[in-house]
Amino acid sequence: MTTQLVQDPYNIIITGVGGQGNVMASRVLSNMLVSKGFFVTIGETFGASQRGGSVMSHIRVSSQGIWSPQIPKGQAHVVVTLEPVEAVRVLARYGNPSVRVLTNTRPIYPADVIAGEANYPDLSEIKETLGKLTEKSWFIDATDRAMSMGNPILGNIIMIGALTAVGDIPAGREDFAAVISRTLPEGKIDDNMAAFDLGVEMLKKAS
């Protein structure tokens, strides 16, 4: 784990589909970073936008101060996507040749795809696209593993664990433990810690 920012501001995007727990994931990660003494700015929208649409949290980590809640074009350093095609969507605006992308492989099909009016690409196509558009990308079956743990929402925590294992985030397991001990009821701590550790392990295997 690094203690310094590799870039300042360091720009993280967490993206997914309304209802997946995007806001919760960004809140947990940001509180880990605030506890390390960093300034964190989060930009996100919720309300109507969460009804099955694409959602994004922009997280700016800095030792200098507050930044724009919208990341400028082409300035993402790392993208965490809770849903695979959202990775492709987000890079059109925020990607750049040195971006790194961490993707959950479980699709959520858009209404137009379910209705047969649009095509959802195969995972192999998404992998190929991300291969072209990123410096490095990882694919993790986070939701599938979370389901076998008994709750698909833990997929978000698996993704946060995996993100810390990428190496550029100046916060780790202890910070995660400290944040959830403040925000979650006692009975949920063990499952969340297990999910975090699983994410770390899965990223190492995917590398």
Partner: peptide
């Protein structure tokens, strides 16, 4: 490339 990939590879997600 990124814009073309999103146009052809990321189906629109209407609110539902």
């Amino acid at each position: 490339t990124a814009q073309l990939s999103a146009f052809t590879g990321a189906p629109p997600r209407d609110q539902v």
